[in-house]
Design a protein around this nucleic acid. Structure first.
Lengths: 160, 160
DNA sequence: AAAAATATGTCAATAAGGCTGACATATTTT
DNA sequence: AAAATATGTCAGCCTTATTGACATATTTTT
């Protein structure tokens, strides 16, 4: 029945594939489920306002870095201008984000959350924060430092 | 750091929102970037075959649990039958997954990866596994246990 | 045996959130 | 004055998800 032992490295396209047991399926799956449930937390709140995860991300980063420009945001989110436009427009029209013409370069639009935007951003982050606090507490002392280091190293360009 | 005290609780809609400093923005962001880059690893390979992340997930779980039924898969992925249908059909037509009529209940379709499917699943998992190994090594000894416990606790129904 | 429930498949319409290409406008830099 | 830059916008397309409705085969219940 679907034997798992297939020794010897083999090749699939350009990519070297290793044995079953050399692949960390355990953490791959844990990460999948953890992130799936972590991101599902704010969804209920988002739905009420007719927003989605795209709005959440925009709101989050503008809230965390007030005064960031549209270009900054595009760079952070790694999406296109046209993709951002729709979502950003809705957030502006709904009064959660406001734009201020750049004081030095008047072509720029500096982005800020309004009071309502700030409140929404925090309301969205709160259940996620709770989940994290709970998981860290359950994991044990020192977990926070280890988890931080691990996650930071998982990111691209974390400096080898 | 980031004390848990609940000063100045205020309300946004039905949801209780806490102060800035009681919210763990640091790990929220680390998780966002870590997962974004983690999932970007297999994308290049996927594109070559005209597949997307949906195909990746299906292939992954069928590979990990050979013989799972369509219902099992729907339950794991938490998507609808109609959403699964298209993706699964493409994987079957491409020869990566095959269906076997259930030996006890002939209504069921047990799912298995073909040899090509197995090879693809492993090729996709390999860069992710590498990234994890690298991050764990950088984090230090004992990181694996801590990270596993943390991620497991982040999942829903992890048992309080 | 007939009826109901179940597992799966499929058609059609809709939505969110990405994408590319093309072009407009205001502003700054050369 | 010309070129480059930051932003906005129109139009069309793709993927992945949704809901609702209905078809088929098979198993379970009555």
């Amino acid at each position: 029945m679907a034997g798992q032992s297939k020794e010897n490295t083999r090749y699939v396209g350009d990519t070297v594939a290793h044995d079953d047991d050399t692949i960390d399926f355990e953490i791959i799956e844990l990460l999948f489920f953890a992130y799936r449930d972590f991101t599902s937390d704010p969804d209920a709140i988002l739905e009420k306002g007719g927003f989605g995860r795209a709005h959440h991300r925009v709101l989050h980063f503008v809230d965390r870095e007030p005064g960031m420009t549209v270009a900054d945001l595009l760079d952070t989110l790694k999406i296109t201008k046209q993709s951002l436009a729709r979502v950003l427009k809705q957030l502006i029209d709904s009064g959660y984000i406001r734009q201020v013409t750049g004081p030095e370069d008047r072509r720029q639009r500096m982005l800020y959350t309004t009071e309502e935007g700030q409140a929404l951003a925090r309301a969205l982050a709160e259940p996620q924060s709770r989940r994290i606090a709970h998981a860290l507490a359950k994991t044990g002392p020192g977990a926070r430092e280890t988890v931080k280091r691990f996650l930071a190293s998982m990111k691209n360009g974390a400096g080898d």
